[in-house]
Simulated assay, not measured.
Amino acid sequence: MTRAAAAGTILVVPGGRDATDVIHADLRGRILSGDIAPGAGLSQARIAKECLVSRGPVREAFRLLQREGLIEVEVNQRARVTDLSVEEVEHLYALRVSNETLALGLSVPRFGPAELDELDRLVGEVAAAQTRGFDVWEALHHRFHMTLVAHAGQRMLSSIVLWAEHTGRYRKVYVGRDDSGWTLGAREHAELARLCRERDARAAARLLARHLSRAGLALIASMDPTHEPALLRAAIRRALAAEGGTPP
């Protein structure tokens, strides 16, 4: 087992068949968390040497990261972490608004008592985590939102998890130190849990659309106040119209 880059440790058993998965998971987690900064360079040769593996597993891990859009691979086997982009975050939130509202509508009638209790518990934990730092809060916040869409089906859920993780990368950089929206967000979480318990799928979907759109629009404004998020606004209008709501 060996130490990798300065920001973390990759535990790879030399010759192990899971080397690609371990290297990919480590690099992915550190990119999404910001431990490896946007624009930072990555070397296949250096990572392979530090992990005591051939370049093959590292090359495959890079391919997976490139397919997810987290790195850009150059011809000399080096790579760089992709920069943060206001266009990308707009697309991510447009996808989240469109798909999470649909997924919540599908999930509400299927929630069992234990899942409804879990939502209530997470509401309290997310609110309490506001004093424990952004990383703790974000992990619990992510769990709450993924519980809301738990019955959407594995294929859709996998995509929703991916989009949420990618928006988390942006949120840590641009809003991690700004807690101005946490109080309103906590109230909306409690209301979402209540509507789920009451089996009011349409009202829950409308509220989720507004909740996500507020977060997305605020993030875009913090990145580039001149950017007009036409795609996200269209997604918001479509989601709210489908549920009988009015766009913000």
Rank of each mutant, 00 (worst) to 15 (best):
residue 240 L to M: 04
residue 179 D to S: 06
residue 97 V to H: 06
residue 245 G to D: 00
residue 190 A to K: 14
residue 32 L to A: 03
residue 66 Q to C: 13
residue 83 D to S: 15
residue 22 V to P: 00
residue 162 L to P: 00
residue 224 D to Y: 08
residue 170 Y to I: 07
residue 220 I to N: 13
residue 112 G to L: 00
residue 227 H to I: 08
residue 36 I to R: 05
residue 197 R to T: 01
residue 211 H to F: 14
residue 9 T to V: 14
residue 113 P to Q: 04
residue 19 A to E: 00
residue 34 G to F: 03
residue 232 L to Y: 05
residue 80 R to W: 07
residue 14 P to C: 01
residue 51 C to D: 04
residue 80 R to N: 05
residue 96 R to P: 00
residue 64 L to R: 15
residue 63 R to K: 14
residue 15 G to D: 03
residue 237 R to N: 09
residue 75 V to F: 05
residue 171 R to W: 09
residue 91 H to T: 13
residue 242 A to T: 08
residue 4 A to G: 10
residue 191 E to I: 11
residue 40 A to Q: 04
residue 53 V to P: 01
residue 173 V to A: 08
residue 89 V to F: 08
residue 157 L to T: 14
residue 98 S to N: 11
residue 146 M to Y: 10
residue 27 L to A: 02
residue 200 D to W: 01
residue 71 I to Y: 02
residue 235 A to T: 08
residue 85 S to K: 13
residue 97 V to L: 09
residue 197 R to E: 00
residue 126 V to S: 04
residue 20 T to Y: 01
residue 23 I to D: 00
residue 102 L to S: 15
residue 164 A to H: 11
residue 117 D to Y: 03
residue 60 E to D: 15
residue 120 D to C: 07
residue 219 L to F: 07
residue 174 Y to G: 02
residue 8 G to S: 14
residue 186 A to P: 03
residue 208 L to Y: 09
residue 221 A to C: 09
residue 25 A to C: 06
residue 203 A to Q: 12
residue 87 E to I: 13
